[in-house]
Design a protein around this nucleic acid. Structure first.
Lengths: 204, 204
DNA sequence: TAGTCCGGAATGAATGTTCATTCCGCTCCC
DNA sequence: GGGAGCGGAATGAACATTCATTCCGGACTA
């Protein structure tokens, strides 16, 4: 009666605020309980929104998962596209590594959501396309370094990329799983070791 | 009385045969659709068994997931325990790598099941304990090599292990995801690059 | 040997629960 | 006063689990 509720909560203004609240809540709960463990009512509750409201913004749970996925993956694309290929190789590599670590630290839930991969059965064509769009750029960076003779040539760039990405992701997955505690110098050493994976060794 | 045999299909004898059939079917379907996407009736159907029969052998879906998990993880333990630490370091490393690749090729569903990690919410204390049991052995192998001065010392063994394991797993995950096609020489090059990650580089 | 019986393995329809989605009445803004 | 937004109970489908029933193979009897 008297109180017209705080408009941020009940107001019809700012529909984008509510949409973001839903995306944030969904990411939180996906990261916590997995996509399958997250019920729509639970997401609504965390977003401080009615269950039905979610469906004003997203036609289905699948669509919501894809929206969360796209938001995170676009951040990753930004990080990975910003390769400073004109710098010295190791410096450029360290730059990517640093930005990736910053992302993991700034958005642990986002990283965990992407890393868990239980969203895979939900992904639609758009989401898959974005994934495929990101790879060539980074692969091209390593291909260039192979050309310069800095990086070992016995590995195709996409294979090398799979190794590097796997190493990076599993480092933080292990931390999150409680198998490791990572200090800054651990992370720096891991970075240098991963770079060591790229360098030419004695080829048989 | 000579042979109560034909029972492979309908017989009541040989309960282990049926239990194995259920485990095999469950692994198949888990690898295909994920643990959450696998319904008990679907598993029963693939195992050519009534739904209720599964519950004769496993008290719940959770128990079934854990049984599948333990079976696979025990194979991995065997592979990883067989480190030939007395050989030359690179030879020992190549031996582990080869056995791991053989496992992935021989049991693609098993590898995929372990790699998807959507079983994690189902794992009980026993399963987690097995995981924790495996790590120290392998970490010890690398710690020894650090002592010998072969492997870089700026990384704790468990951190190095996380990097190596992540690289290996993601290599085959990428293949399975259709991002890569791996030839034997790709795999050999990946092995050598991963070993390059372990070697001492110039430390700052 | 042939007939009958018994224990318990096997079955799959039925049950209760959980969840995505829908629906409807209420509130607020114009 | 009307309509756009909203909340949350209602709905129906899907799933894990249960249980009344069927079925089998050996044991016992004569």
């Amino acid at each position: 009666m008297g109180m017209p509720k705080i408009s941020a909560v009940h107001g019809k203004r700012e529909p984008e605020v509510k949409q973001q609240a839903v995306l944030d809540a969904a990411l939180d709960i996906f990261a916590e309980s997995g996509v399958f463990g997250a019920s729509m009512p639970a997401i609504a509750k965390r977003a401080k929104v009615g269950t039905g409201t979610i469906y004003r913004y997203f036609p289905s749970k699948e669509a919501l998962v894809n929206a969360v996925y796209l938001r995170e993956k676009l951040m990753l694309r930004q990080i990975l596209e910003a390769v400073q290929a004109h710098l010295a190789p190791k410096v450029a590599f360290d730059g990517i590594w640093k930005r990736l670590v910053d992302y993991v630290r700034r958005r642990p839930q986002g990283f965990r959501f992407l890393e868990m991969q239980d969203h895979l059965p939900y992904l639609d064509a758009d989401s898959r396309a974005l994934e495929a769009e990101i790879l060539p750029g980074v692969a091209g960076f390593f291909a260039g370094l192979q050309h310069e003779g800095v990086v070992r040539r016995d590995l195709r760039p996409d294979v090398l990329l799979a190794l590097i990405w796997g190493a990076f992701v599993n480092l933080f997955k292990a931390e999150r799983g409680g198998y490791l505690r990572l200090t800054d110098s651990d992370i720096a050493a891991a970075r240098d070791a991963t770079w060591g994976m790229c360098l030419r060794g004695e080829q048989p």
